[in-house]
Simulated scan of single mutants.
Amino acid sequence: MPLIHVSLRAGKPEAYREAILDSLYRALREALNVPEDDQFMTISEHAPGNFRHGTAYGVQRGDDLVYITITVFNTRTPEQKKALFRRIADLLGESPGIRPEDVFVVIADAPKENWSVGHGLQFA
């Protein structure tokens, strides 16, 4: 039950944004074995003056940088997370063609009791 939010500079066409979401969904299915149609994702676009990055950690990022925040149950192993990072970078490279240097991912763990996925009910 991952919840994904993507931030990027404004101006990319709809097909580009859809390719990001499609690639992320595929990575989740392959690396974390999420259920079919488990697609809870949003994209926010930002004007250049509202979107900043640097070259910290020895990475030469460019204007196609995407920030990806993924909230998941706290049951994912470090190995699963590593596999997900790699698969996201690979798939976004294939479609829509984002360089690996421009893929910035953060995974936030949350216990299942912190989730309500509908009807105001706690996830069981």
Rank of each mutant, 00 (worst) to 15 (best):
Pro96His: 08
Asn114His: 15
Phe85Tyr: 15
Pro35Phe: 00
Met41Asp: 05
Arg52Ala: 04
Ser116Ile: 06
Phe73Arg: 15
Tyr57Glu: 07
Glu36Met: 03
Ala108Leu: 02
Glu101Asn: 14
Pro35Tyr: 00
Ala47Leu: 14
Glu79Lys: 03
Asp37Glu: 14
Pro78Asn: 02
Val103Ala: 10
Pro48Leu: 03
Arg52Thr: 02
Ser95Arg: 13
Pro100His: 09
Ile107Ala: 01
Pro111Ala: 12
Leu92Gln: 05
Leu84Phe: 05
Thr77Leu: 12
Asp109Trp: 07
Leu92Tyr: 02
Tyr57Ala: 08
Ala83Tyr: 01
Ile88Ser: 06
His46Glu: 09
Gly49Leu: 10
Met41Gly: 01
Val105Asp: 07
Arg86Pro: 00
Gly58Cys: 03
Val103Glu: 10
Asn50Cys: 07
Gly58Ser: 06
Phe51Met: 15
Asp37Gly: 01
His46Leu: 11
Gln60Leu: 12
Phe85Leu: 11
Thr77His: 02
Asn74Pro: 07
Ala47Val: 09
Arg87Cys: 14
Pro96Ile: 05
Phe40Gln: 02
Arg86Ser: 15
Ala47Arg: 11
His46Asn: 12
Lys112Ile: 12
Leu91Glu: 07
Phe85Ile: 04
Leu65Arg: 09
Gly58Trp: 09
Tyr57Lys: 08
Arg76Asp: 15
Leu65Ser: 01
Leu84Asp: 05
Ala89Asn: 08
Glu79Phe: 01
Pro96Tyr: 04
Ala89Met: 01
His53Leu: 10
Ala56Asp: 11
Thr71Pro: 01
Asp37Ala: 08
Ala108Lys: 14
Asp64Ser: 03
Ala110Thr: 15
Asp63Pro: 05
Met41Ser: 07
Ile70Leu: 10
Ser95Pro: 06
Gly54Glu: 07
Met41Phe: 13
Arg52Ile: 00
Thr71Arg: 08
Asp37Val: 03
Gln39Val: 08
Val106Cys: 05
Tyr67His: 15
Ser44Pro: 02
Phe51Val: 14
Asp37Asn: 14
Tyr67Met: 13
His46Ile: 01
Glu45Tyr: 06
Asp64Met: 01
Ala108Pro: 01
Ser44Tyr: 04
Phe73Asp: 04
Glu94Tyr: 03
Thr42Ser: 14
Tyr67Ser: 14
Glu94Thr: 11
Asn114Ser: 13
Ala47Ile: 04
Asp64Pro: 11
Glu45Val: 15
Pro111Val: 02
Pro96Thr: 06
Ile107Leu: 12
Gln60Thr: 14
Glu94Ile: 11
Pro96Asp: 09
Tyr67Asp: 13
Ser44Asp: 10
Ser116Tyr: 09
Phe104Gln: 11
Thr55Asp: 11
Leu91Cys: 08
Tyr57Met: 08
Ala56Phe: 12
